[in-house]
Simulated assay, not measured.
Amino acid sequence: MDAVILAAGQGTRLRPLTDDKPKGMVEVDGQPILTHCFDQLIELGADELYVVVGYKKQVIINYYEDEYRGVPITYTHQREQKGLAHALLTVEEHIDDDFMLMLGDNIFQSNLQDVVNRQQEERADAAFLVEEVPWEEAGRYGVCDTNKYGEITEVLEKPDDPPSNLVMTGFYTFTPAIFHACQLVQPSNRGEYEISDAIDLLLHSGRTIDAIRMNGWRNDIGYPEDREEAEQRLRAEADEGADDDADEGADAEDVASVASSE
């Protein structure tokens, strides 16, 4: 399955970190955000990476060149930042089967594989990871409205009055049907072509849309404090892993000691 990474944005809320580089090249725990994204997508089975670039695109292209960990990279250019649906259309000519989509400003430590499995097993027209956030933060994201059965009935992009606190997280799988929906999307009140509006069109046309609850965590690196929080989480997990390895080593030594005494 191919993977598309959207990395064209300017990251104005991250300035001055993005004065000389695009948001995806801001380092989190010693590596650019895009490196974290690429590693996860390759672990999920990405055969090729399609990276949508825009703002200071050459920084990304010069850094990764035409492959990463042996996986080919193709770059497409979003000349004007007119929204995620607009960005996705830049890869349409390259994609003819199911694909993964990741926003290139997210750090995930969660059940992304569940989304890919749902796409492969059920072949939904779209599947995506959702999480509940504090109500006061819901307006930062694409918000999912639900009925009394918990089924998603509508998706709204950054609403002023969110109908729920269940939001899309920035990882999706799609069939090529999403491209036609993106072509039909009209500019939002923000003047952008929103991916949430394209998903909403699929939903209301009777397409199969699956939402998978997130198990784990993710950070949308929109502000400097988001970057700091992601670094703390990654380091805490690394420390926990080191402690587990030390415990396993101690257990192995105990077993060896017992065996030698016998």
Rank of each mutant, 00 (worst) to 15 (best):
L201S: 05
V115C: 01
A7M: 08
A124F: 02
Q232Y: 07
H36Y: 11
E225Y: 09
V133F: 04
L41C: 15
R207A: 10
K56H: 14
V4C: 07
G191V: 13
D39N: 15
E43Y: 15
F171M: 12
L44A: 13
D47S: 15
L44E: 13
G170Q: 01
T12L: 12
D160G: 01
W217N: 04
I212K: 02
A46F: 08
D161F: 15
H204M: 10
S110C: 15
L88I: 01
A8P: 12
E225V: 01
V4A: 02
F174I: 08
N117T: 12
H36I: 03
E154R: 14
L6I: 14
K158S: 11
K57I: 05
I152L: 07
Y141I: 08
Y50F: 15
D47R: 15
Q119D: 00
K158L: 12
R233N: 11
E80R: 06
F171V: 08
D19P: 03
Q81P: 00
D243W: 09
I60R: 01
S260R: 06
M168W: 06
N219W: 04
A127Q: 00
V53M: 05
D200A: 01
V71M: 09
L88H: 03
M100L: 08
S188Q: 11
I221P: 07
I209T: 04
N117D: 14
E229W: 10
D145P: 03
Y50G: 09
R213A: 08
R123G: 07
E240W: 07
W135V: 03
A127D: 04
I221C: 13
R69E: 13
D210Q: 12
T76Q: 11
T18C: 03
A181C: 08
A236S: 13
R140E: 10
R118I: 08
M102L: 09
A177K: 14
D239Y: 15
H77R: 02
D210N: 11
W217T: 00
I61L: 14
L203E: 00
H180F: 10
D96K: 13
V185H: 02
A211R: 03
E228D: 13
C37P: 07
D29C: 12
I107R: 05
W217K: 02
G139I: 02
Y55C: 14
T169G: 09
P32T: 01
L166G: 01
T153D: 05
L84E: 08
E231N: 02
P224R: 13
N215G: 06
Y141M: 05
E157N: 10
A126T: 11
G241D: 13
N111H: 09
V155C: 12
D245M: 11
V4G: 03
A256N: 00
